[in-house]
Design a protein around this nucleic acid. Structure first.
Length: 884
DNA sequence: CATTGTGCAA
DNA sequence: CACCTTGCACAATG
């Protein structure tokens, strides 16, 4: 039996005993008062008439109904109910600068305003004041956070809808096909969704929404992607579904006969590398060869374009029956049983199926095409389920790993894992937890539940070490069973089963590999991984990093991240690359529970000084120079200075973040504080961090974007941002995450501070509001202060007068990029070579050149350069050069 | 083993 | 409405 401390796994087992239903996902979990009348007359929805394809059109209609922006927004001024006014106010409060500009409610933010128009004629139901949510015809849902039934409704809504924005009083959610897939994936059936939604809603659920829900959920779970002997199969008890999928060219082209080799065949190195031959090895190989034989026949048939195998696979399509031998796995029986018991759904797909005897049919797809197939299937609204029945997997050797007896996991971690293991199997997906909320422990717990070979992917070498450390901290895994693989650590993998921790770039690296690396990569790609853990999963959609998913084969994938956002549009790719978002913690809930520090966010407005602003406005000033000017704005510096001084007096630990290295250096130098950036060697870094941690006299350090990731400073409780990477919401959230570690002085008030210094009337204002969006959606509010620069006493400042300001301005205008400096150096070296003798490389010549360059005769310098063949074709340099 | 170069991500 | 620098990982070099 399981130790009573492992509540989570306790739950998993019980979940299974209860017949595969999610253990806290059934309708009963969303209890509402029984005297609420159920006014949903489950009208019979005719599945036959509506195929899943309709969902997309419905979605279009839904969005179209949102209508023209401006008119709706202005006409919505007198929303009918008090709570809608409240919503609006709240929404506006979320945006930092609402006073003068009404137009800056952008993107998703305006939906609430528009929707007010749409629901004028909605009828309120009895007990509507008790019911916590509004369901609008466009699929948006609003939840009153003050409702006594908030928690029930919250649990339900996060399961079926995407959180859009969760400020203090009213939360906005949105129904999307993906969110509904995820809901069905965690075992909430369609009728329950509609029923509970209706019960919670103040107004009857609009027909459009119900239709949308049904259309989205009807085809979910009909087809499945499974991994067998390192080959991928699309499998379904419904031949019709497979036929449908095969109509898609992407899918049909990805199809592969059982015995066919993929073109990208690995080097012929078959000599016993496949180590699946464990305890059940004999049985496995027997089944394997039988399967191959059976499929070979099928493949032949397909080649001939002729006879269908199996009665169900007619219609000109030749389906490869799943060989009987493959059905030995319980997984299949359970699938069949589920389909059998699926009472509420007399599915059109099953029309020809003999009720009790569901047999799975399957066809193989190329491993290299899995990504595209999944995307295509998603687009067709037959999202492929990926579930791993790890308890009944006898093919892959088990891994000896258990949580230590004293390991405890928190309620929300357990909850997130319950979404993953809800029906006793492991489903692929993404868990979103804020920084410092224990993502690693969540991942480790998942790995020790599955107990199969586990591949962990991280973004950097240091986090590889951290993961290994955490595995050893929380579990009893043997030293021989866990290994790291980075450019400088190459540990041997356990042949049987083990945990391997590596980086994305290690796997996706395209260039020449060292011999030892080649060997390890080979074993990684050959192995059938039980579990793949993707740390910082928001990086995975990147062109190179997503390759890891086609290179490594895993039964189940779990992505972890704190910030599921990107500034490009690739984030939604994760839906088919990994799976649905299984759980997203609410930052404010965790703050209230004391798991996170209570952060006061402040945006400090710093007016530009006259000289800096006139430079800023000059025509022909490059974007980079403009950026430098608003960062180096003396009022910003003095604001920073003032904040540092103030927090020093409180004995706080302050981090100054600067994305731009030049300005960071300048600030740090003038303030006389240590700073770390990319070029700071490791020894120096740990020395500075060490003193910052322990020395009460060193309470302030500067960090470049090295601090955004991979530097952990639990002691810090104040952040001052002096410069940032444009509108990166991820950076903003990640920086805030640095001070989220709960602080000891919890007295209900703010115990951490997050300042962003913004030069007014510059593009920095725009970026700043963009950056804050993610945090605003998590419920943070930004307080705007305007007078800090003047509040500071000039005489105490290191930049007290106009003369010193002008000096800074001068330096700012002369600031060179690293690239420019390198080029200068190169050019100098070249000049030296031209002059001839190496001995002339003396100080005199070098100095002269340097001074000349610094004096700013840029144009001529580059012109001269032009007459020579370009020494290097760095694209960045090229464009700059062309400009001049 | 410290540095350098390349390529990538954001 | 895009902005383009900075940091990192990896392998190869002297």
């Amino acid at each position: 039996m399981i130790g009573r401390c492992h509540d989570f796994r306790f739950c998993v087992f019980h979940g299974r005993h209860r017949g595969g239903g999610g253990f806290d996902e059934d309708e009963d979990a969303y209890l509402v008062p029984s005297d609420w009348e159920d006014d949903d007359d489950d009208e019979d929805w005719n599945a036959g008439g509506t195929s899943g394809r309709r969902a997309r059109d419905l979605q279009k209609n839904l969005t179209a109904s949102r209508g023209a922006k401006g008119a709706a927004a202005s006409s919505s001024g007198k929303g009918k109910t008090a709570s809608k006014q409240q919503q609006k106010q709240q929404q506006r409060a979320g945006a930092a600068n609402t006073d003068d500009d009404d137009d800056d409610d952008e993107d998703g933010n305006d939906s609430m305003l528009m929707n007010l128009k749409d629901c004028r004629d909605m009828q309120l139901k009895p007990q509507h004041t008790d019911r916590p949510i509004w369901v609008l015809p466009d699929g948006h849902i609003y939840l009153e956070a003050s409702s006594p039934y908030y928690h029930q409704a919250y649990d339900f809504l996060v399961a079926i809808a995407e959180p859009v924005s969760r400020p203090e009083f009213v939360h906005e959610y949105k129904l999307t096909p993906y969110s509904l897939y995820a809901a069905v994936a965690v075992s909430i059936d369609t009728d329950s969704i509609v029923k509970v939604l209706n019960r919670l809603s103040k107004t009857p659920v609009p027909d459009s929404v119900e239709t949308f829900i049904r259309a989205c959920t009807v085809s979910y779970g009909k087809a499945k992607l499974v991994l067998k002997h390192n080959k991928h199969y699309i499998e379904s008890p419904f031949p019709e579904v497979l036929r449908e999928l095969l109509k898609n060219p992407t899918v049909s082209q990805a199809r592969l006969g059982e015995e066919e080799e993929e073109e990208v065949a690995p080097p012929p190195k078959t000599g016993g590398t496949n180590k699946t031959a464990a305890a059940g090895g004999a049985a496995a190989s027997g089944a394997g060869s039988a399967a191959t034989a059976a499929a070979a026949a099928a493949g032949g048939a397909r080649g001939g374009g002729g006879g269908a195998r199996g009665g169900a696979a007619g219609d000109g399509f030749t389906l490869t029956d799943a060989p009987q031998e493959m059905d030995v796995n319980l997984e299949y029986k359970e699938l069949a049983r589920e389909g059998d018991g699926d009472d509420a759904d007399p599915d059109v797909m099953m029309g020809t199926q003999p009720g009790g005897a569901l047999k799975n049919v399957a066809f193989r797809v190329k491993n290299s095409e899995v990504e595209h197939v999944k995307k295509a299937a998603n687009d067709m609204e037959y999202p492929l389920m990926e579930e791993y029945d790890f308890r009944n997997d006898t093919l892959n050797p088990p891994l000896k790993i258990d949580l230590k007896a004293n390991t405890r996991i928190r309620a929300y971690q357990e909850k997130s894992l319950s979404k993953m293991f809800g029906n006793g199997r492991a489903r692929s997906g993404i868990i979103v937890l804020p920084c410092g909320a224990g993502k690693t422990l969540t991942g480790v717990t998942a790995a020790s539940t599955i107990k199969k070979s586990c591949l962990v992917l991280c973004t950097s070498g240091v986090s590889v070490l951290q993961w290994k450390y955490q595995f050893q901290l929380w579990t009893d895994i043997a030293e021989k069973d866990i290994s790291c693989f980075t450019s400088d650590i190459k540990e041997a993998i356990n042949e049987e089963a083990g945990v391997l921790i590596t980086t994305y770039s290690m796997i996706s690296f395209a260039g020449q590999r060292s011999e030892i690396a080649k060997k390890i990569i080979d074993t990684i790609t050959k192995r059938e991984w039980g579990f793949m853990l993707l740390d910082e999963v928001h990086v995975v959609p990147a062109r190179m990093f997503r390759k890891v998913l086609s290179v490594c084969n895993a039964h189940c994938k779990l992505g972890l991240t704190a910030t599921l956002v990107r500034e490009d549009d690739l984030i939604s790719d994760l839906n088919f690359l990994i799976g649905p978002k299984l759980y997203e913690a609410n930052w404010m809930d965790l703050t209230q529970s004391g798991y996170l520090a209570n952060v006061q966010c402040v945006e400090a407005w710093c007016p530009m000084t006259a000289e800096f602003y006139s430079e800023y406005l000059k025509p022909g000033v490059t974007a980079r120079q403009k950026q430098l000017l608003y960062i180096m704005n003396p009022n910003k510096f003095r604001t920073c200075e003032y904040l540092v001084r103030t927090h020093m007096e409180r004995n706080d630990k302050v981090i100054i973040f600067g994305d731009n290295v030049f300005s960071l250096k300048k600030f740090a130098t003038i303030l006389q504080i240590p700073f770390i950036y990319g070029a700071t060697p490791e020894s120096e870094r740990s020395r500075i961090l060490g003193t910052f941690r322990v020395n009460p006299l060193v309470n302030c350090i500067g960090l470049s974007k090295v601090g955004d990731t991979s530097i952990d400073i639990p002691e810090a409780n104040v952040i001052i941002q002096i410069s940032s990477h444009f509108g990166s919401r991820r950076q903003e959230a990640q920086r805030l995450g640095r001070i989220l570690r709960p602080k000891s002085n919890v007295d209900g008030g703010f115990n951490a501070f997050f300042y962003t210094l913004v030069s007014t009337d510059t593009s920095e204002m725009y970026y700043s509001s963009k950056r804050q969006q993610y945090l605003v959606d998590q419920g943070y509010t930004f307080k705007v202060v305007t007078d800090l620069a003047n509040a500071s006493d000039r005489s105490q400042s290191k930049l007290p007068d106009r003369k010193s300001e002008l000096r800074v301005l001068q330096e700012t205008l002369m600031a060179k990029t690293d690239q420019e400096e390198k080029d200068e150096k190169k050019m100098l070296d070249r000049d030296m070579d031209d002059i001839g003798e190496g001995s002339a490389r003396g100080t005199v010549m070098r100095r002269k050149g340097n001074l000349g360059a610094l004096s700013g005769a840029d144009g001529s310098r580059y012109m001269e350069y032009d007459s020579r063949p370009p020494p290097k074709k760095h694209p960045l340099f090229k464009s700059r050069y062309v400009k001049m």
